[in-house]
């Protein structure tokens, strides 16, 4: 009994068998190559993580976590502290403008300003971080006289993180159903109360994801910091300008090319710490998002 398209359309048994064979082959090749693609990616991922973790773990020692850098050896305490200061500084600086922009784009999207800001934010995402670093060097470090400093480094990181926080805030706020807003307005609440009191709390997981993303990006950046934060072998003394600061990604870049094994150990350990931190944040933000999606009784987020 002819049931499939092949069987209906093919005139005779041999033709049917031939084209069936071709289709099976196509299927095999198709699934095979897509499986291969996934395996390639998975394999590469395992290779990178393997190198970073194995060499990083063997290089990690209590000294590295408790001492500051001395020349080609010593530890990474100054770099760890520096990364924390710079990343938190960058996120703090970017949080308010980013949130404000996201709120404006999601809630008050009438007229031409909102699409314009959205376009500019999308463009800013694509600007290479070295361009931002170069800009920071010429204006903040040299022209304004801040020299290598926490201020310059954090500001550069903030500019990089701004569009991410803006976009994720906007997307998170758009998931909040209109009914919630309308009922709040109907009860007489003003703009501020509706947004800050109702919508933000409802969209908090999504917003948090954006902040975590900005944190991860800030921890992993190197090029802009090379020309804004400089490098220091010492712990931060609290000065925001006129004093450089260390950061883990510098250790990775500068020490791996030195022909000294103590330098290599620092580089691997720094790579391990940075990668670990970034991976934990990515998994954390994914978990938050998944939990939010599953728990919310509203429509499934589209993108």
């Amino acid at each position: 009994m002819a049931t499939t398209a092949t069987e209906i359309c093919a005139p005779d048994r041999r033709a049917r068998r031939g084209s069936l064979l071709r289709r099976r082959l196509f299927d095999l090749v198709g699934w095979g190559s897509s499986a291969l693609a996934l395996l390639l990616l998975g394999g590469a991922m395992l290779w990178i993580l393997g190198v970073v973790f194995l060499r990083g773990l063997s290089a990690l020692s209590p000294t590295i976590l408790t001492h500051v850098t001395e020349g080609y050896g010593g530890g990474l305490l100054n770099a760890i502290e520096g990364t924390a200061v710079l990343a938190l500084g960058g996120v703090l600086l970017a949080a308010v403008p980013g949130l404000a922009a996201g709120i404006y784009l999601a809630e008050f999207d009438a007229g031409r300003l909102a699409p314009f800001i959205r376009f500019l934010a999308d463009v800013l995402v694509g600007v290479p971080s070295i361009v931002i670093g170069y800009f920071g060097y010429v204006t903040l470090v040299v022209d304004l006289g801040w020299k290598f400093s926490v201020a310059a480094g954090s500001l550069a990181l903030a500019i990089i993180s701004l569009p991410y926080i803006c976009r994720t805030t906007e997307m998170a706020l758009r998931q909040v159903p209109r009914a919630l807003r309308e009922s709040a307005y109907a009860l007489g609440a003003g703009d501020a109360r509706v947004v800050l009191g109702i919508c933000l709390p409802a969209a908090l997981p999504g917003i948090l994801t954006g902040i975590l993303l900005a944190l991860a990006i800030s921890v992993g950046e190197t090029a802009p910091l090379l020309y804004t934060a400089g490098w220091s072998n010492y712990l931060w003394t609290g000065h925001l300008t006129n004093e450089p600061i260390g950061y883990l990604t510098y250790a990775i870049w500068a020490f791996i090319t030195e022909p000294f094994s103590s330098a290599h150990a620092l580089a691997y350990a720094a790579a391990l710490l940075v990668t670990l931190f970034v991976l934990i944040i990515s998994i954390l933000s994914r978990t938050i998002l998944e939990g939010w999606r599953r728990r919310s009784p509203w429509e499934r987020p589209a993108l």
Partner: peptide
């Protein structure tokens, strides 16, 4: 599995350079 693959995008550029 997709998380595993997406983590590739999260790894910083300098770590790729190191590898």
């Amino acid at each position: 599995v997709s998380l595993f693959v997406e983590l590739l995008a999260a790894i910083p550029s300098v770590v790729y350079g190191l590898w």
